[in-house]
Design a protein around this nucleic acid. Sequence first.
DNA 1: TTCTAAAATTGAGTCAATTCGATTTTTGTG
DNA 2: CACAAAAATCGAATTGACTCAATTTTAGAA
Lengths: 204, 204
Amino acid sequence: MSGLRARQKADRHRRIIEAAAALFRESGYEGAKIEAIAAQAEVSIGTIYNYYQNKGDILGAIVSLEVNEVMNAGRGVVSNPPANVGDALDTLLGIYIEHSLHYLSKEMWRQAMAISTQLPDSPFGQAYTGLDQSLTEQIRALIARLQGLGLVRKDIDGQALGELVFNNMNMMFIEFVKRDEARIPELRAAIRRQNRILVAAIMA
Amino acid sequence: MSGLRARQKADRHRRIIEAAAALFRESGYEGAKIEAIAAQAEVSIGTIYNYYQNKGDILGAIVSLEVNEVMNAGRGVVSNPPANVGDALDTLLGIYIEHSLHYLSKEMWRQAMAISTQLPDSPFGQAYTGLDQSLTEQIRALIARLQGLGLVRKDIDGQALGELVFNNMNMMFIEFVKRDEARIPELRAAIRRQNRILVAAIMA
DNA sequence: TTCTAAAATTGAGTCAATTCGATTTTTGTG
DNA sequence: CACAAAAATCGAATTGACTCAATTTTAGAA
């Protein structure tokens, strides 16, 4: 027996996340009242708080799903990168950016980012920091790969470079989600322009 | 007559800011209740909301004071920078970082940053974005100065470089305020390490 | 099957930010 | 000095996230 209790738990988790995701998209984060999420998920308010510490953690669970998907997509690029440093970076960062609005609206991203700085020690705050680190690590892995392929100078500080690239992209992404009218192609072009300086410095 | 109404207004603004700054420092942003701020400033709750749209805007006014001070301090470096690219960047960013905790606690910074992404169109959200842009502009001005002095190659894209340097510092600063145990010297060292890659690329 | 402890659910109650209509203060005019 | 319009102040009422003690459900031992 796989445990009735365990099955019910998983089912309720799923129902809460689905209800919340739908309502966040539909009415925005603030607009989606806990009471409405509870009703749609067919659980009580108290149960939601038994599963998640606060409203932010619900959003956090949704964000984690998205970022993990993005990271999986990124793995392909790292293992088989374009044979050109600029393109390789652009391809990886492009995947992050293009995937980013699949499940999450800009408003949801804004809230998620806000919560992660506001409550860095909450479950979601810690998870979000971890996700950032994983993405930084993936960029660092790409750089190491390019070094292995002889496309990037071996004496470059890959750690520092990975951080620099991630931090810049992340900050650009934050500004991007802050402006509803901002568009993905312009974001990517701006980041490419910034990275051009780095690429010139690190090409073998 | 300088206007009784105008004087009272300025006076109440000041009282509210002073009361809020004291309470934010003392009890944290969440811990400082509007009711307490109102009592300490000797105005009613309603009056506070006549002066500021929401609690975040009060914090915003305090942050603006701090950032403007930082920016003034930065002007000195731009007009008379150290004769070495790495040191010049380190000096300017160092001023930003060292000043940052004069009036604001890490917790206040966290809240301020969170609010600015959460509500980018609120008065404070827009002001904060403007402050970021001014700082980016100041870094860009330093780079232009260094180009003028023949320390940085003239063909470097100063705009993109300024953004890259600012974005990286800002992201590092965000992570810094998220961890209470993080220390300024380590933050500066990490940023210096990252910038070393850039410095190598742009030195004349 | 029956019973008890542990785990989970529930929703009325609490708390604090924000709103808004009634009240007070200031201004400028006659 | 009135007085009326405009500008500000005020705080009680509203709203919505979150808590917690009472109740219900599940697990598993006898």
